[in-house]
Amino acid sequence: MATLEIRDLHVTVEADNATKEILKGVDLTVKQGETHAIMGPNGSGKSTLAYSLAGHPKYTVTGGTVTLDGEDVLEMSVDERARAGLFLAMQYPVEVPGVSVSNFLRTSATAIRGEAPKLRTWVKEVKETMERLSMDPSFAERNVNEGFSGGEKKRHEILQLELLKPKMAILDETDSGLDVDALRIVSEGVNRVRETGEVGTLLITHYTRILRYIKPDFVHVFSGGRIVESGGAELADKLENEGYEAYTKGGVSA
């Protein structure tokens, strides 16, 4: 069973000619089949955690370990992490002009699977997955994220999640900027992947809204660069009613 283990993770970022520590000792274990929601106020470091796990060059890991099935993730390059089974659905997916969605998906699937998917089954697989996400077939001929609406970008991220079948999916504010219909469609996509039982999910969100569609097994409150409280789904209800004030004012900020 795939396990992602994060131990005492410290991460800094360079900003305005100064080094700032954003993550201050994160501990978390996510197992295949589990869904963990990470909730916290703006600026608490949630997205930094997501991008650090994926290996974004902007972030420097200064301490701690991250392993996937015992393998040292921090030693891997960005593409190696993806091929090892980590997937990051981004909050702000990047436009890649000149590269069509269909070409991008196939290149990516070839890299992840280690061989080019058979064309006939692949075309069918993509088509069916797009249909389930209510994506028009013409989408495949557009350039990656170029001119996509906010909702289209998020559907495109979930399309990749469904096609690439990672061991660990990190969803960074996938719910932000979505209307109710889009949120439902995107959540259903995530749930289809979760129902296989083969993916561990790290759901990063500011709002509890998405948790009505995607039921977490664990909820963690993130504040000041670390996890300050963990519980079950009921913790989300508490946050829904009380907000983050107790955590931001409670002296946990460093």
Binding site: D79, A82, R83, L88, V94, T107, S108
Partner: peptide, 12 residues
């Protein structure tokens, strides 16, 4: 752009 493509397993 490079990060996005690499995050999908595609070598640099």
């Amino acid at each position: 752009q490079l990060f996005y493509l690499m995050a999908r397993g595609i070598p640099a």
